[in-house]
């Protein structure tokens, strides 16, 4: 008698696949349609960014989110830089350097512009390279305090114990940026992502990734 009502044991034993809570894009088209995905290399919030890589990245490691401090945090140094560039114009009204020979005044103004350029360059580069990266394996905090000192901190996703975000102050409420505090079981207890856009979305993404990681392990 043929077996009619006997199903394949392999099919019977395997559980139904758990739907992913994380909408990882499989194709370039899907990636383009994701909210927060951008081609702007100066963006402060980039979801599944293109053409981004970093030192010590694993082969299979995927970058999910790239974050920087909100652009509005740069307003102060931009205004200071603009004032510095305009400062020599004041000399035509208030000749502070009139005690110097003309050739010294010329070199002094050149030197002032050189220092102003260095100031703007340093502030921009520090903002540009002060980055937070969330991958499918870990979170990284690359701090570039000045032009000669950098600090890279990373924590595996399975070490994350708690994620807290905060948005405080008028400016932060208007422009919707804040801090995300990640408490870990690693040697460095806390990672703080400061002044990042949409901290609520970042916290949600971290939660989704951690759930995904937990399901993959179970």
């Amino acid at each position: 008698m043929p077996d009619i009502f006997i199903t394949d044991s392999e099919e019977k034993d395997s559980p139904a696949p758990t739907p992913s809570v994380f909408p990882e894009p499989k194709t370039a088209t899907q990636r383009e349609r994701l909210t927060g995905h951008t081609h702007n290399p100066l963006a402060s919030y980039s979801y599944f960014p293109d053409n981004v890589t970093f030192e010590n990245r694993e082969k299979e490691e995927k970058i999910i989110l790239l974050l920087r401090r909100h652009p509005v945090t740069n307003l102060t140094w931009i205004m200071v830089g603009a004032l510095m560039l305009l400062a020599p114009v004041i000399l035509t009204v208030f000749p502070f350097l009139s005690f110097l020979p003309a050739r010294f005044q010329f070199v002094a103004v050149l030197g002032w512009y050189m220092v102003s350029f260095a100031f703007v360059l340093e502030k921009f580069v520090v903002w540009y390279y002060d980055i937070f990266i969330i991958t499918n394996e870990r979170v990284l905090d690359i701090d570039f305090y000045n032009l000669i000192y950098k600090e890279v901190t990373d924590a595996s996703l399975d070490k994350i114990q708690d994620v807290t975000y905060s948005v405080g102050g008028v400016g932060r409420a208007i422009f919707n940026y804040g801090d995300v505090l990640i408490q870990t079981a690693a040697e460095l207890e806390n990672l703080r992502f400061q002044a990042i856009p949409w901290p609520d979305k970042v916290a949600k993404i971290l939660q989704d990734i951690r759930m995904e990681e937990k399901k993959a392990k179970d």
Binding site: N51, V52, T53, E55, F117, A118, V125, Y128, I142
Partner: peptide, 20 residues
């Protein structure tokens, strides 16, 4: 830094550094 992190704006930043 451009060797540490590649995001897509490395050329202009290097240009500014050399200009300085």
């Amino acid at each position: 830094m451009t060797e540490t992190l590649k995001v897509g704006f490395e050329a202009p930043i290097k240009l500014f550094a050399y200009a300085h």
